[in-house]
Design a protein around this nucleic acid. Sequence first.
DNA 1: CATGAATGAGCTTTCATTCAT
DNA 2: TATGAATGAAAGCTCATTCAT
Lengths: 195, 195, 195, 195
Amino acid sequence: MSRKTELRRKQIIKAAYQAVSDKGYETVTLQDIANYADVSKGVPNYYFQNKEDVLAHLLEEITERIYQKEKAAVENETSFQEMLQAYINAVFVNPEDNEKFYKVYLDFLAQATRNERYRKINARFYQNCFSISQLIIMRGESEGLLHSMNYDDDGKAMRSLIDGYMIQWLMTGDHQKHRTYKESCLKAIQTYLTS
Amino acid sequence: MSRKTELRRKQIIKAAYQAVSDKGYETVTLQDIANYADVSKGVPNYYFQNKEDVLAHLLEEITERIYQKEKAAVENETSFQEMLQAYINAVFVNPEDNEKFYKVYLDFLAQATRNERYRKINARFYQNCFSISQLIIMRGESEGLLHSMNYDDDGKAMRSLIDGYMIQWLMTGDHQKHRTYKESCLKAIQTYLTS
Amino acid sequence: MSRKTELRRKQIIKAAYQAVSDKGYETVTLQDIANYADVSKGVPNYYFQNKEDVLAHLLEEITERIYQKEKAAVENETSFQEMLQAYINAVFVNPEDNEKFYKVYLDFLAQATRNERYRKINARFYQNCFSISQLIIMRGESEGLLHSMNYDDDGKAMRSLIDGYMIQWLMTGDHQKHRTYKESCLKAIQTYLTS
Amino acid sequence: MSRKTELRRKQIIKAAYQAVSDKGYETVTLQDIANYADVSKGVPNYYFQNKEDVLAHLLEEITERIYQKEKAAVENETSFQEMLQAYINAVFVNPEDNEKFYKVYLDFLAQATRNERYRKINARFYQNCFSISQLIIMRGESEGLLHSMNYDDDGKAMRSLIDGYMIQWLMTGDHQKHRTYKESCLKAIQTYLTS
DNA sequence: CATGAATGAGCTTTCATTCAT
DNA sequence: TATGAATGAAAGCTCATTCAT
């Protein structure tokens, strides 16, 4: 794939991200995506097989990017508490970005129940998230602050608390409450881990 | 509304439940719903204002029914442990029903980010779920097994763990794993509450 | 046809008149007509063959009634001037009634271009109108005020001036202008006849 | 708008003209229009906002074209009699064209009673027609053949006679009678003007 | 007689996709 | 490469008509 092609695809995926966030997975049209990307109607179909292909690449892109960011944030810290805080900071980054991401991510989760391709992409994302959790938990253990029975279970629990709190926050539709849900989520994870 | 009308509406909503579960919120057509209900194309439109109206009633119906079942299950028990177990039993009732419900529920959550009506229905559902959690927690407190700092926070955490585990299970696409996720979820809640 | 049937049909036609005036010939539904008549949806179909049959009877009814009224008004007078004035008074009776009638009548004229049945009903109406014109003109001749070359031509001209002015007035959408158009129409007819 | 787009729109409007004339304003479908234009179903919606938009452009187009033709015909003549005759020739051009135009025009008049947009287009058409009448009348005055009290009133009367005779002719459904109605109309206008 | 539930044809409109330019 | 005109499938919705009650 040429450099130019690469760029075009990125441009379209970025536009698709904004478009899906604004209009919703099923409601968004290729025309919308083209408009957001400031290209003509035919371009998305030229650089991707079809609409679903654009959206699958979007899901891959955003889950991978989120993972890289969170991983980097956590790896930058040394103590358990700092790592956990850094993780939560990276997850609950700010109301605007979180709303954008979780609107789209929820759309994809809903689709994934009936779409193998999306389910696979999400499975990889889950694995990546679990690996971050494990990093934090292992550090907590080495500091003697906690004792995990099962990294996998704890990863699932942490993922549940993060997704669950984020969805509940999203449903309030209130950006002001972002800080509160973030703090509650952190506290819940701490409570769970250091029991 | 006459008794017969009532029945017809129930029938259509039931058909819509199966149809949405099979095809997805946006993909399902009124024709699908009519087919599943074994009635003609015009009937859903006769008994409801439009497609969205059918689906909003579906969301109301399923969230209310789930709540009533879970509440009844919990109220039937006396000890904290039994109540919690009964709750989890009612939530993780069996792979088939859980898949059906959560496929549809996830669809609605995804829609709710852009639809006030759905968001309101979901807010009521959340409140109802929180009230069940509170019932269980208060019993745990009276038994001296735990000490809640904040019923609201604990309700959110329990909801997060339940939704989170259920979504993760759904994403495996594996009915066999239902039992494992159920047990993990129960353990996570216990860990969280009795810390 | 029984007395009751007769009444029901009148009731439906009256409702249809109002309904068509409000909604338009093609836009009006049998449900509308039933609503206006305060009967159930099935009634119009019970008393008439189908929708077109209702509307054809409506056209017959309103053209016949208008003719009878105008004829009576003219026959009540003795001089040419009084007869003409009475005719115009009966035609331009008031803004509300004229709007109602001409909205519906225009709808039927438009339909009549493609509907033999309506065209026939309108042909009878024209004949009736011409007979009124003839009555007036003959009186004018016997008073020595005018000299018709051809009753038929003059009838057509009078009909043209009445329909034309009425349509132009209707297009203004202004009830205030009713009086002006009425006077202009009268003057135009006088000018035409007494040339 | 590109030249090609312009042409396509003209093509669709022309097809719509024939289609409406054949089937009627409300009865005609976008499919009909597409068929008459020998394009696919989606094309009319591609070039116009919706069905009403197509039809409004049609009304604008045909009223403007008729006006331009009539104006040109009148301006080509020098004497009052010639101008009037040219006008009537341009109005009563031939049975086929007149039937086509007046079928459609009557449809629009009927719609206009409930549609502001159409009413405005027709109001402009009326103004244009009045301006032609004025041209003729002023010439008649300068030749000393007649004396108008009020250009506006005379314009309305001429319009009434033209529309009225045309409608009456249309209702006969008889192309043979076209010549007779044309002559009668001309005579009626002459009688009216030179009284 | 009267009701209104039910049917299904038929409409407008949207939009992914194709393809000539 | 890029465009956007064109296609036509498929959707939601309306409503005349039928008919069991």
